[in-house]
């Protein structure tokens, strides 16, 4: 099977600070991954691990400092026509209340998308298309017609946002924390929706989250990011049921389990983001329980192990 998106040594470097004390932060550090057709791929990690920067690079809102992003063997950095790109890659954002301009009707965005991408010849065709996509997410046109974002609930808005992104029949959907602001009682219905879209519309989804429990629930493959590196990647069952990298273990252990029986957890160390980004060697060495001398000197290479790839000295021969 051929990949639809391939990232090769993708890198983004920001330089921060004033005129005299510039520090360079490698927000995304030579990461490589690929997306298969009709799969859900999770990019997981804590805030400031580079997952959103990666998403913005795929959407073309940021240019990579180095490396390449190939969509069907076409290099994204050479794509001049952004509109053609958005026809294939669309996105859903975190805050449903911010996704649409509060002073504009939600339906305007649907008609605009159809108009700008020439998806319908007339009003009737446009409405049919909108109805079809809204049906797919469990809404109908009369639910949103004539309404402003303030009149819809967070769940409805997030569904509408997904429906809008589907109008162009994209082959890749980027979902940046799409459920973290949706009400708890509705969250799973939105999560289930991604699975359904993936299965019935053959859309691949890049699901960006720090919530490993939902990632486990819907995704096929997962990549755990830490301070710009992908530290572990592979099929989701492998990675989350049998974690190898100490950081993956920490993340899994930190999930608040819905089980009051296990309340006490071992205390953890907590370091500042900036400090870790500037660290030499393995970025996790500052709080790794199994740290070795070599970890502080050298960034580990990727090692293949039982179908997963781990970036850790523990597993290097």
């Amino acid at each position: 099977m051929s990949e639809i998106l391939k990232a090769r040594s993708l890198t983004k470097i920001y330089s921060l600070g004033g005129l005299f004390s510039r520090t360079k932060i490698t927000a995304v550090d030579r990461i490589s991954f690929s997306i298969q057709p009709a799969e859900i791929f999770t990019l997981a990690g804590e805030s400031g691990c580079g997952k959103t920067t990666t998403a913005r690079m795929i959407l073309g809102f940021e240019y990579p400092t180095a490396g390449e992003l190939l969509y069907e063997d076409q290099n994204l950095t050479e794509v001049r026509d952004k509109k053609a790109w958005f026809k294939k890659v669309q996105a859903v954002f975190q805050n449903p209340f911010e996704t649409f301009n509060p002073l504009r009707k939600v339906e305007d965005y649907f008609f605009e998308t159809i108009h700008n991408f020439h998806l319908g010849k007339n009003e009737r065709e446009a409405e049919e298309l909108i109805e079809e996509k809204l049906q797919a997410v469990g809404l109908s046109f009369c639910d949103i017609s004539g309404k402003y974002p303030g009149e819809l609930s967070g769940g409805q808005l997030q569904r509408a946002s997904i429906a809008r992104s589907l109008l162009t029949n994209p082959s890749l959907l980027i979902a940046d924390e799409p459920v973290s602001m949706v009400d708890a009682s509705l969250r799973m219905s939105v999560v289930n929706l991604f699975r359904k879209l993936c299965d019935s519309f053959q859309v691949s989804v890049i699901y960006i989250t720090h919530d490993l429990a939902t990632a486990y629930y819907i995704s096929d493959r997962i990549a755990i990011m830490f301070r710009g590196h992908i530290v572990e990647t592979g099929p989701v069952d492998q990675v989350l049921e049998n974690p190898k990298h100490p950081y993956t273990k920490l993340l899994i252990e930190s999930i608040p389990q819905p089980d009051p029986q296990i309340q006490e957890k071992a205390p953890i160390k907590f370091l500042e983001e900036r400090e870790e980004y500037l660290r030499k060697g393995c970025k996790f060495s500052g709080r790794c329980p199994e740290v070795m001398e070599i970890c502080k000197q050298k960034v580990p290479d990727d090692t293949s192990l039982d179908g997963t790839v781990v970036k850790c000295h523990l597993y290097q021969k």
């Binding site: 959407l59 809102f61 952004k82 509109k83 958005f86 669309q90 996105a91 954002f93 975190q94 805050n95 911010e98 996704t99 649409f100 301009n101 002073l103 504009r104 305007d108 965005y109 605009e112 998308t113 108009h115 700008n116 991408f117 946002s161 809008r164 992104s165």
Partner: peptide, 26 residues
């Protein structure tokens, strides 16, 4: 910096219509 700017860009709006439809009313 607000998210709806991105939604508008993803809806295929160019600079001019983005500014006049999204920013001007606000």
């Amino acid at each position: 910096e607000r998210e709806f700017t991105l939604t508008s860009v993803l809806s295929g709006n160019g600079t001019l219509s983005l500014v006049s439809k999204e920013y001007l009313p606000l």
